[in-house]
Write a protein that binds this DNA or RNA. Structure first.
Lengths: 335, 335
DNA sequence: TAGTATGATGTAAGCGCTTTCATTTATAGC
DNA sequence: GCTATAAATGAAAGCGCTTACATCATACTA
């Protein structure tokens, strides 16, 4: 592999000049620039990015920690992030946190040890304090889908409370008054926020959530099917359920069918996230759109702006969800 | 940030000794090792991985190129790969190739310029020759889900032909004789192989694929719905269709419902891949299992073995698919 | 007890770049 | 044509490590 030294020799200029044409910020005369370019071409020269990083103390790499690498949600997020950075010539190092405190902390550590210029973190299990402490260390980071008041300027998040509100209101407007709720793990902030929004909507109708019609799931399909079974087992009548994400809604739909119920004739089902497959469930899932890809892009742009000084970039930090009505919700029968 | 130099000073030993205890291969007396460890602890020392890479000409990073970062298939693959490397202390740089020749070549270039120690490639659009040429360059790589005869020792693949065969045979055994086929893009090797397997099974029953009942889709939901419409429009009767992947099968299922057909009463549908959501479609999709996560693991282990000399690792290069019968296929009515 | 392995440690030369500072060369003003 | 200024280029010192190679102390052999 040719080095910068051989290029400089072939072109008959100094190392410094070659370096300058590579980082074309400084002025180099057209003539020498061409000589150098030609020499590079001829030698098939490729700069050694490791050496560049060492010398410039900038690795051009961004560490991404997400809970999982699979699943419709994280996939979209990663796609958005990667696209943005790739275009900027930066590269992306990924790690999975699996929603566990130790693994998340370990992942952050791992990424930091890799000399990332910045981190994009989708963490759920580490404490706010941990993040606040982390913010005092040298590596900058943004938080995706998390609100830490003390770190407000580094948070890119969705208004989950509003989403929960919109979902419930949709059902209420369709006349539903007995609404079951299959929540996400309540130690997760987004799960809690969604439920709070739900409660707020109910309150507007002078209603409160029935504890017997509440089930705490795991954000996965099985959580939805177990949740539905639990609601049914409670013996309490209900005409609709909201699931805190689409995976659980899908599980609930499947379970409903297996148990002989028909959605939305027997009861309506709302999802949340509007992941790709929500259109392909049966019936098509009414849900709340989560602009996850856009938010991934935005996190990347935050980094480009704050860390790589690309000042012409605008960043939006709070996103709003909106309702996607489809076929899994129908008007309530006469109550 | 503390450097190795300060550690050596605090511990009262030379740079080399500190380096030795970090890479604990060489012999260092217990006493000095402890002194050094203690000094590191005290300074909160963390080695600079960039400097390590430059000095050792080993980056401990592996480049991964997949077609997409989202979608159930690639997500599983990445999860498998990441888990394996993370445990080994290596890190993973990812890029998306989007199934386009230029983007794939560019991605490989990008990864190579990042000094990856090895590459794991899931490429579809670049030519065999390109890969053969690439194999002559310094960066080693494995191919996932691709068979290049000249590079057989670097391929980890599924026997797609067998999968196509199993899918068709299942239908034939259920008495179906008029079978539609919604293929993937036929320029992709896996799409072709699956179809070849399909033809082989038909041949065993003295049948050939009806060209009017063949549709070339795009491996996505919309491909499946368009495909079904095309088959229906052909006017040819059929009692079953096989889709070359689960996404298209899901699209076909949804389209069938919209058009007023019932699966499997009106016709059976087979998928391929056994992605996560296949269990949650309605009806539950009969499909062919693709052990994608295991194959991701295996690709990572190939790298560990061949590039990082972990000789105790076994690698399996060819995987076999198998049938997962569920509810979307039923016996053919009397023909 | 001299002679020789052997294990532990130190010295110093890179790895391939970036970047500051000094130097040379070109341009302009008068 | 000569000096003042700006533009282009070069020299060289790192960036924080790894790793031959050299050195030194100790343990063993005969």
């Amino acid at each position: 592999m040719a080095t910068i030294y051989q290029v400089s020799e072939l072109a008959g200029v100094s190392l410094a000049t070659v370096s300058r044409v590579m980082n074309n910020n400084v002025r180099v005369s057209e003539a020498t620039r061409n000589k150098v370019l030609q020499a590079m071409e001829q030698l098939g020269y490729r700069p050694n990015s490791i050496a560049q990083s060492l010398a410039s103390s900038r690795s051009n790499s961004i560490g991404i920690l997400v809970s999982e690498l699979h699943g419709p949600f994280y996939g979209e997020m990663l796609t958005g992030i990667e696209a943005e950075f790739r275009a900027a010539g930066k590269h992306v190092i990924i790690a999975a946190g699996h929603s566990e405190r130790a693994t998340e902390e370990d992942g952050i550590d791992f990424l930091r040890s890799r000399n990332c210029d910045a981190l994009i973190l989708h963490v759920e299990a580490v404490s706010d304090q941990f993040l606040i402490d982390l913010s005092k260390k040298e590596t900058p980071f943004v938080l995706l889908n998390r609100q830490v008041p003390a770190l407000a300027d580094r948070c890119i998040s969705l208004d989950n409370e509003l989403g929960g509100y919109l979902a419930a209101r949709h059902l209420l407007q369709q006349g539903h008054r007995h609404i079951g709720y299959i929540a996400g793990p309540m130690w997760k902030a987004d799960a809690r926020d969604r439920f709070h929004g739900h409660q707020r909507a109910l309150a507007e109708y002078q209603l409160t959530a029935d504890e017997a019609l509440f089930f705490e799931g795991d954000f996965r399909e099985t959580g939805g099917s177990k949740g539905l079974q639990a609601l049914l087992a409670s013996g309490r009548p209900f005409s609709a359920i909201v699931c805190a994400n689409d995976e659980m809604a899908s599980g609930a739909l499947t379970a409903a069918r297996e148990l002989g119920y028909e959605v939305p004739a027997d009861f309506s089902v709302m999802g949340f996230d509007n992941v790709n497959f929500a259109y392909y469930t049966y019936p098509k899932l009414s849900t709340i759109d989560y602009p996850v890809s856009a938010m991934g892009h935005m996190a990347a742009r935050w980094v480009l702006k704050k860390v790589y000084q690309q000042s012409n970039i605008d960043v939006q930090q709070v996103f709003n969800p909106h309702l996607i009505p489809r076929d899994s919700v129908a008007e309530a029968a006469n109550t």
